[in-house]
Write a protein that binds this DNA or RNA. Sequence first.
DNA 1: AATACAATCAACCGCAATTAC
DNA 2: GGTAATTGCGGTTGATTGTAT
Length: 303
Amino acid sequence: MARSPENGVKKGPWSIEEDKKLIEYIEKHGQGNWQTLPKQAGLNRCGKSCRLRWTNYLRPGIKRGGFSAEDEATITALHKQLGNKWSRIAAHLPRRTDNEIKNFWNTHLKKKLLRKGIDPTTHKPIPDFNLLNLSRTQLSSVSNLYNVISPLDTALNFQASANDLIKFQLLQNMMQAINPNPLPYVQGNTNLADLIQLNWIFNGANTDFTTSTSHSLQCSDGEMIPGPIRDDNVKVPSNVYNSEYSLPSLFSVTPESSVVNPLENFMHTSILAEAPEQSNVFDALESLVDDEASSSFWKDILG
DNA sequence: AATACAATCAACCGCAATTAC
DNA sequence: GGTAATTGCGGTTGATTGTAT
């Protein structure tokens, strides 16, 4: 059971005197019980604060700062494998604390990966819509599509998530086309394997979409267009997986359904508009696959 | 020089897991 | 086995420092 720290105990940065008291006490008596330690050591601090101060800063042998390139590579590799399991990552780096690794990740490594175009959460390359050389119509549609989908609030996240969304939507629309039953939507950072292994249990629910802030996207002609903007009036279609982070559900295969599918709309208004000679969405998609400018996109989906 | 903004990181908080009784 | 106490973890905050205007 969580409890608030004892009343009247000091908070905030530790003074030299406090550090000295804590070090002297632990050197003499050992760590023992952190709850009783402050009183016995003559410190007006809660046990939790003492433990944190000792384990992260005062404990002998702690290595602070000066992360080498090798350290960075190790942390990045471990993060890719373990995610935000800072204590487990720290266990692989002798004398480093989980708190310092966490701070280093959040302030340095995360940004470094983003600059390299790598999603720090998935450790996968962030697809760039601008590299797809999409037309203004297509980008607007992607932008509008995303507008009703994700609460993520950075441009990079927008690009990564919207791209994932398109992949999933494309795959799900394809699967929907050969599946007589309505399919649920995939949530969050799900990879292709998860999608394929998904247990297709339909879960209908009503909710509102959480929307995003604005970003800019560059069209193939170089012009910048506004990215998704917050629109509290946008509502989710009726059959949507019940989660704040859920993606909109597929359009129903039943003809009586009136649910509007954003991707279908995107394909009809954008892809087909770009290739009016194509008779249907799948012809247009095939055309898109053949397009050299989109090859990496499809390799990413199919690979 | 003054101010605003951004980056950093020590420390806190809430919750979960573990341990003690 | 159940409950309370303790410890550990990860997310977040806010004070401090650095940089830009």
